[in-house]
């Protein structure tokens, strides 16, 4: 659609085989059931949803750390999904990932300096003589002392380790970063520091982000636009402020009501979070959300609603916003 998109994801699908016990019934989990979105250059795009909805699979599938079954990922007009092994390695220079668990994402047997020097060597970003200097500048750019290079990851705290992970993602001068729950494992005070750091880096280096999170506060703070995901599908997309202030999809509304507000005067939960996420092995017929939806209609049990643009820049997959289903009654839910 728009020309300024740096990353374009079209109808991405991934199913996992699952077998319950020996001789158990074979089943397919639709982790990604045809999701599409695009991220503009310099933008932070959010992907929000409950655990198990497939948002991490989405992040990894677009880097092909998990091979998607079908669909298309385009980075700056080049196809990632159909790239050869060699081309993919080249493309990966431009797209990096920051992981959730800062304890699992750094090789415990590697000095921090070596861990940051390795990508520089592999891709010959700088000459060998310049490597120590570059490592030091990477460390200072994420707010760590240059001496950190001579230590092992276990000598650092979670927040510091996450900074090392960020420095590693920056080593290749990538333009696009997938942040997979990058702050979820950290204390709230540290979360703020890391978010500030990411914002600073985004401004300095004109980075684009796919920011995967389950925290609406973080989403609102960090992302300009985003999508809400439910059981492998996107249910609502648009500017984050509009989405959170005036949710169109009942699920977005439920998520918002469930997340705490910093203002004690705000009335709490008018819509109760009902039920649990159904098993992705056996998603409900029709709209996946209808068993938990307070406004479910008979039609919702039968037909999955398509994603439609209902306001400029705002898309939602819900029959309540489809005039052909609702007749005259379309309303702000």
């Amino acid at each position: 659609m728009s020309d300024d998109a740096i990353l374009k994801v079209t109808q991405l699908r991934k199913t996992f085989d699952s077998r319950s016990g020996f001789l158990g019934r074979k089943a397919k989990v639709h982790a990604l059931d045809g999701i599409s979105f695009e991220v503009k250059a310099g933008e932070a795009y959010g992907l929000v949803g409950e655990s198990g909805c497939g948002k991490s699979t989405a992040g990894r599938a677009l880097l092909r750390l998990i091979e998607p079954d079908s669909g298309e990922v385009e980075f700056k007009g080049q196809s990632v999904t159909s790239a050869s092994k060699r081309h993919l390695r080249e493309l990966r220079r431009h797209i990096q990932i920051i992981f959730q668990d800062p304890y699992a994402s750094l090789n415990p047997k590697q000095l921090v300096g070596d861990l940051l020097a390795e990508p520089l060597k592999v891709h010959k970003i700088v000459t060998d003589a310049e490597i120590p200097e570059r490592v030091a500048s990477l460390l200072t750019s994420v707010g760590l002392p240059a001496e950190a290079a001579t230590k092992y990851p276990h000598e650092f705290s979670g927040g510091q380790r996450q900074r090392i992970g960020i420095a590693r993602a920056l080593a290749l001068e990538s333009e696009f970063i997938v942040a997979d729950e990058a702050v979820s494992a950290l204390d709230v005070s540290i979360q703020a520091q890391i978010l500030l750091l990411l914002q600073k880096l985004q401004a300095e280096r004109n980075l684009s982000f796919l920011f995967i999170t389950h925290d609406l506060g973080v989403l609102r703070y960090f992302c300009q636009r985003g999508s809400v995901m439910y059981l492998g599908r996107l249910v609502e997309s648009g500017p984050t402020r509009d989405m959170l202030d005036r949710p169109l999809h009942p699920y977005t509304r439920m998520l918002r009501e469930a997340s705490p507000s910093p203002d004690p005067k705000t009335a709490r939960a008018t819509v109760k979070v009902a039920g649990e996420v159904p098993s992705p092995l056996d998603p409900p017929q029709g709209c996946h959300f209808h068993p938990r939806c307070p406004k479910a209609m008979p039609h919702c049990r039968e037909v999955y609603p398509e994603m439609r643009e209902v306001e400029p820049g705002r898309h939602v997959a819900c029959h309540l916003h489809d005039p052909s289903v609702m007749g005259e009654q379309v309303e702000g839910v």
Binding site: L63, Q100, N107, K109, E118, P119, V122
Partner: peptide
């Protein structure tokens, strides 16, 4: 994740096995 990070950084399988798995 650190093995996945290695793949994302474009390391060859051999390098990942030798430098990251083996140690």
């Amino acid at each position: 994740d650190f093995i996945q990070a290695g793949r994302a950084l474009g390391y060859s399988d051999l390098r990942i096995m030798y430098r990251h798995v083996l140690p």
